[in-house]
Amino acid sequence: MNAESDERRDAATDGADGSDKGLGSRAPHFVKRHRTLHLSWQVGVFVVGLAVVIAGIIMLPLPGPGWLVIFGGMAIWATEFVWAQLVLRWTKRKVTEAAQRALDPEVRRRNIILTVTGLVIVAALVGVYVAKYGFAMPWKVGK
């Protein structure tokens, strides 16, 4: 056994104290009792989750909340599939870690300095452009 499988086994036993729901299917009990019905349920959940994930992927280059919809599809899958539950737990952990790092005063100071530096550079480039060409649009320059 390795640490990852121990972690998964521990995660699967969560829920006994009410702190976290365990891994596995959240299908109604009457669906779980019949193998054919449960398999049909899983296929249905997979198809609906896949449709939502595909819609999110389509929204990535188009206007719309693409990543939010993709994670919504993953949440649909997580109601039935352990692998999706593990992916969502990993994602939640990474987002929480990133949020904590962003709140660190040193990181915030560095990000503010980089943002201000970038804005100064952009302002300087815009100033050079306006000084050379005036307020002409780029596609009308040189005519």
Rank of each mutant, 00 (worst) to 15 (best):
N2Q: 11
S5L: 12
D6T: 11
E7K: 07
R9F: 10
D14S: 11
G15C: 02
D17N: 08
G18D: 09
L23D: 07
G24F: 09
G24Q: 05
A27V: 09
A27Y: 08
F30K: 04
V31M: 15
V31Y: 10
K32L: 15
R33V: 14
L37N: 08
L37F: 10
H38A: 04
V45S: 01
V47S: 00
G49H: 01
I54S: 04
A55G: 09
G56N: 01
L62D: 10
G66I: 02
W67I: 09
V69Y: 02
I70C: 02
F71V: 06
M74R: 10
I76G: 03
A78L: 01
E80R: 00
E80Y: 00
F81G: 01
A84E: 07
A84P: 11
Q85G: 04
R93P: 00
T96E: 08
Q100P: 02
R101E: 14
A102L: 06
L103H: 15
L103N: 14
D104N: 07
V107K: 15
R109M: 14
N111W: 08
I112C: 04
I112A: 09
I113F: 12
L114V: 13
T115L: 11
V116R: 02
T117V: 09
T117W: 07
G118F: 15
G118N: 06
V120N: 09
V122K: 15
A123H: 07
L125N: 06
V128R: 05
V130M: 08
K132G: 06
G134C: 04
P138V: 08
W139T: 11
W139E: 08
V141H: 03
G142L: 02
